[in-house]
Amino acid sequence: MKVEVKHRKNKLGIVGWIGGGRFGAERYAYALHRLTGLGILAYFLLHIFVTGSRIGGRQSWESAMANFKTPLFKFGEFLVFLAFAYHALNGLRLIITELGFMLGKAQRPVFPYVTSVHRQRPLFIGLMIVAAIIIIFGGADFYFI
């Protein structure tokens, strides 16, 4: 059976992606997930060509790398690392919850309400702590060691 997907007008547009209103932290986590996903994608598409220069041998690799030895590029690379640490750990949470794990059992909504968003929150916080630790180690490695 062919299912026609109904299209509705997206009224909020890009503003709807960024602003989370008074929804929980997860709503902002989503905006950041989207931003980091697009950032890594942009880097990655260029990365395929830059690392592809190694097919031309050492010289071609070294001349490609010579363009990236500035502090600005180093900082850019660090941003990619930050985006990766966040996107990877938050993505892990999304995979776990979207497959239905760690959301608890369905139950009657009796006051005080506990929704699945609340139930996954310890996972969210825990994984963000892991991301922070990775970022600290990465930052130390980038700039101090």
Binding site: F81, A88, F137, G138
Partner: peptide, 16 residues
């Protein structure tokens, strides 16, 4: 998650 994790560790946590 697995393979880029590896790639990032090799490329960025080299001192560690």
């Amino acid at each position: 998650f697995v393979f880029l994790g590896l790639h990032m560790f090799i490329m960025h946590l080299e001192s560690i």
